[in-house]
Amino acid sequence: MNTPPPKPPAPPAVRRIPRSEAAAAAASPSPDGLVRLNKRMADLGLCSRREADDWIDRGWVRVNGQPATTGQKVAGGDRITVERAAQGAQARQVTILLHKPVGYVSGQAEDGHLPAVTLVSARSRWAEDRAPLQFAPAQLRGLAPAGRLDIDSVGLLVLTQDGRVARQLIGEDAQVEKEYLVRVQYGAVAQDVRAAFPAEGLARLRHGLALDGRPLKPARVEWENAEQLRFVLTEGRKRQIRRMCELVGLRVVGLKRIRMGRVLLGRLPPGQWRYLAPGERF
């Protein structure tokens, strides 16, 4: 009787590194204290990492007087200089403030819903925008949301070509406040929710909740009126406010972002946009 040949040993399991973990590993200094040039440039506030790689490819970056190379690592004392051409390209980048209405997604089109960037055109620019800029289709190239608003939420959405703005608003170390007005119901209670909602629930919204196994940072949460809460957050987890409210028995029936940092939605009409003005900072 023939004996079947032994089975070859199973290949070792390959561990898939989560994207966040891989990004953290790439960003960490090497044992010799060196870091990637693009990270150092981003940390210095010169540009985003993507911009840094583009500038390096174009020959616009020098390290200690020598042309930089893609993937190069630098020490803390290395001198990084950037050509004026890069600064000029950066100066032409725009940041747009859009009042997103219900029914539009923040990023890529999904489930048949259009991305908010499709609202940006010469015709939809707010008539009261006083920024000394003229709209051009090239400004739509690379224009991406810096912070999301889900399809059922409205209010201030920032779209930018500038990696420095994106890093400030949604980078790993971002501390910019985001302010929201949130209309809620408590079970069957739709009017005078404030009177029905227990004080301990409000305390938990401020601090003590966790999402996806991670505790949330402290938040400022106050009653704006009998049916509406005001949230001020410094982080932006996916559908964070709606999920926070669900954890304490509230249902969100309306959500509007009215501020990001020092920039207000103000009187900007739904579906219209304006430029971030010169001198205006988040």
Results as ranks from 00 to 15, higher is better:
Leu114Pro: 06
Ile96Gln: 03
Pro67Trp: 07
Pro31Thr: 12
Leu98Glu: 00
Arg36Phe: 01
Glu83Val: 10
Gln93Cys: 09
Val74Asp: 06
Glu21Tyr: 02
Glu83Asp: 15
Ser20Tyr: 03
Thr69Asn: 01
Ala22Lys: 15
Gln108Gly: 07
Trp60Val: 08
Asp54Ala: 13
Trp60Pro: 08
Arg50Thr: 11
Ala13Arg: 14
Leu44Val: 03
Pro101Gly: 03
Ile56Lys: 07
Thr70Ala: 07
Arg50Asn: 09
Gly112Pro: 13
Ser20Gly: 11
Trp55Glu: 04
Arg62Leu: 02
Arg15Pro: 00
Met41Trp: 08
Arg15Gly: 00
Gly107Asp: 11
Val82Lys: 01
Ser20His: 15
Ala85Cys: 02
Ala26Val: 06
Thr95Met: 02
Pro11Asn: 01
Ile17Met: 14
Ala22Gly: 15
Val35Lys: 11
His113Asp: 11
Asn64Tyr: 06
Ala52Asp: 08
Arg79Thr: 15
Ala13His: 07
Asp57Lys: 12
Gly76Val: 11
Pro5Gly: 06
Arg19Phe: 11
Ala75Trp: 00
Gly65Asn: 07
Arg49Lys: 08
Arg19Val: 15
Asn64Glu: 10
Leu46Asp: 00
Pro5Trp: 04
Arg19Lys: 15
Tyr104Ile: 03
Gln72Gly: 10
Thr69His: 06
Thr95Trp: 04
Asp53Asn: 13
Asp57Val: 05
Asn64Trp: 04
Arg58Met: 11
Gln93Met: 13
Gly77Ser: 12
Leu114Asp: 12
Val61Trp: 01
Ile96Ala: 02
Ala26Thr: 09
Ser106Met: 04
Glu110Tyr: 01
Ala27Arg: 15
Gly33Val: 10
Met41Pro: 05
Gly107Pro: 02
Gly77Arg: 10
Ala25Gly: 15
Ala23Ile: 06
Val74Gln: 08
Ala42Tyr: 04
Arg58Phe: 01
Gly112Ala: 12
Ala42Val: 10
Gly112Glu: 13
Tyr104Met: 05
Arg84His: 13
Arg40Leu: 00
Gln90Phe: 01
Ala24Gln: 14
Leu97Asp: 00
Ala86Thr: 08
